[in-house]
């Protein structure tokens, strides 16, 4: 979304103002969607714990949302099972651009303990591109908050990113 050498200077100005406005609002209220593609639940309850009063990630404007069409960040847990692969892809593709992905837990990064199980076809970044990895089994809520903060920083340095799913 870079501004090329366009003859319409005014449109460019508008475009950049609009882009900055969008980035600002996105950074101050990123909406999450959570997808479990075969995790043991451990990571999922830690994500939930991150959003509840003790850790309260909502103070960054982060909110968990039900529909991929409203979400900016996909937060994935677990290895990818044969059945969940297509669902994961579909969820990712339904998200509006720009979209970001956080992979939470050892399983999401490498398959973890479940690597080699017959119904596990791999880890998250073999299916969709991942922006931030959070190691741990499961990671502590502090680590998940840290990942969110890193991602928010990344949003502003890299600007909006458009990427298609590798299907």
């Amino acid at each position: 979304m870079t501004n090329g050498a366009s003859p319409h200077k005014e449109t460019n100005l508008w475009q950049s103002v609009l882009d900055r406005l969008k980035l600002w609002s996105r950074k101050h209220s990123p909406w999450l969607i959570h997808f479990n593609s075969g995790s043991c639940n451990g990571c999922d309850i830690e994500i939930l714990a991150t959003l509840t009063p003790r850790y309260d990630a909502e103070r960054f404007g982060v909110q968990l949302h039900g529909s991929p069409r409203h979400a900016d960040i996909l937060i994935c847990t677990g290895p990818v099972t044969r059945q969940a692969r297509e669902r994961l892809l579909r969820t990712y593709e339904q998200m509006p651009n720009p979209k970001y992905v956080i992979a939470v837990g050892a399983c999401a990064i490498t398959g973890g303990t479940f690597a080699g199980c017959y119904n596990v076809i791999g880890h998250i970044d073999e299916v969709i591109p991942v922006d931030v990895y959070v190691p741990g089994c499961p990671p502590r809520p502090e680590a998940i908050i840290d990942a969110l903060v890193i991602l928010l920083q990344k949003m502003s340095t890299n600007g909006p990113k458009i990427e298609e799913a590798v299907s």
Binding site: S37, G38, D44, T81, Q83, R87, G112, C117, Y118
Partner: peptide, 30 residues
């Protein structure tokens, strides 16, 4: 959707390794 094939996987891990694999069947009642 979360079927991973843990029971089969236990057959190729030692008794001690299985302890950690089976604990990870569920994160709530590990």
């Amino acid at each position: 959707y979360a079927h991973r094939g843990i029971e089969k996987a236990t057959e190729s891990r030692t008794w001690v390794q299985n302890l950690y694999l089976l604990e990870r069947i569920c994160g709530i009642c590990s």
